[in-house]
Nucleic acid binder design. Structure first.
Lengths: 233, 233
DNA sequence: CAAAGCGAGTGATTGCGGTCACACCGACCT
DNA sequence: AGGTCGGTGTGACCGCAATCACTCGCTTTG
């Protein structure tokens, strides 16, 4: 499918590039559509493209040796994934699958690498992104070390709370929260355990479901306390 | 303490730089010595230097909210750490402590950033390094998801096996293996559990202690089987 | 040389969380 | 309607690994 320079320009990471460069990139790029649960990027193979998400929601997932799924991170529209090979030409370490129907633009790595030679903006953007990923993984990892299960769940929930609400402690809402199952595999817990923790959080009026796709945080302060282990559940 | 350009040149990451650049860097760098267990880099603060390890052994560690230590990675001589801020000027995410007495060269980030503008070698080296770190963290993380304890330990052990031995399945040796306690905190297990797994591995003649600082792998194939979950312990 | 400290090995106890087995609900098909 | 499917709530059971409380051997240190 055709890719217009304008489409590429909608991505924050590519916006700073000069128009001529975008035109050039657009010619080499392609758009692909994915159904829910479809595989966007394969693990283990050397991907030749960076995947810019236009519509929908993706998730990076890994599989343990015993076949269980482990959720790693989410990709939202405007963001991209599969950029690791840009640096070391190594294989994509994890799968990326579509959580919803999705539309993505595939830009060849070779072209990006070439362009990044001339455009330090691109390189530093990629560097920042990678750094952010390391930071995110570090946090996630320290989370997995927590001995207390409900604290783990609360911490994970806390990481999903929008930043502004984290500071102001105002009531807020998490859009498209992961399912209990998804949280469970992110934290290597059983689905039932996550369910039970949520049950307690709800009876304590700390969170509240508002249909699927919406989780109200009705006591942000309490959630923070629980996440930090200052209070036991 | 004085830093000579020759000293800087001993680091693989800096070797490709022109002599004049090394001279310039050397003037701004400093050498520091650390006792065992000393803090080399602090978490949470914005470090202004990248730390190149000359002698000794360092470890990146994090602390869970409840104060337990979590081991993240090791730094060997010739390698460096604290480079994350190079990309996003953010704070150092984790502590780095000396596992043994150590000598390290501190090179100011500002200078490195400046130089990296002219020398793409440096930038791509840093990028590769960061990418490698992401890969390493991905592997480590998938490890933490394993439901079986002995498999976790064997996997961790497997990751410490030198690459050549991983392929050839020859008997080999792990130099300076982590203590049981260190393995335990890396895998969020109790020290006793790790001890018990090692006990079984030893009676089965799969590994063998050779004093502190040496762990012989006497049945590399079996260890691989266990790590992959093909066999139960 | 004790003394102290660290790493390692081991048994007994216990409680937490995984597993299994259900029921329930809303959404979406024919 | 009836059917299925995905996400969720809950109780019963039980096994495994954390915890505790030791001992042992080796280094380091005064």
């Amino acid at each position: 499918m055709q890719v217009t320079p304008e489409l590429l320009g909608t991505f924050p990471g590519l916006k700073p590039l000069p128009q001529t460069t975008l035109v050039q990139l657009a010619q080499q790029s392609s758009v692909r559509k994915f159904a829910r649960r479809a595989v966007v990027l394969n693990a283990g193979v050397r991907e030749e493209c960076v995947c810019f998400l236009f519509e929908g929601r993706l998730q990076g997932v890994d599989f343990t040796i015993d076949g269980r799924e482990v959720g790693l991170y989410f990709v939202e529209p405007g963001d991209f994934c599969g950029e690791l090979g840009m640096f070391d030409r190594g294989p994509q370490p994890e799968f990326v699958i579509a959580l919803t129907a999705a539309v993505a633009v595939f830009v060849p790595m070779d072209s990006l690498r070439e362009i990044s030679m001339q455009a330090p903006v691109l390189l530093s953007m990629l560097g920042e992104r990678l750094a952010a990923r390391v930071r995110q993984m570090t946090r996630q990892r320290s989370l997995l070390g927590l001995p207390n299960i409900s604290q783990r769940v609360c911490c994970q929930l806390w990481m999903l709370v929008p930043e502004k609400a984290q500071e102001s402690l105002q009531d807020t809402v998490i859009m498209n929260p992961p399912t209990h199952m998804e949280i469970a595999i992110m934290l290597s817990l059983s689905r039932e355990s996550v369910s039970r923790v949520f049950q307690i959080l709800q009876t304590r009026q700390i969170v509240k479901r508002d249909g699927p796709g919406m989780l109200l945080i009705t006591d942000t302060g309490a959630l923070k306390q629980l996440a930090e282990g200052a209070e036991e559940l």
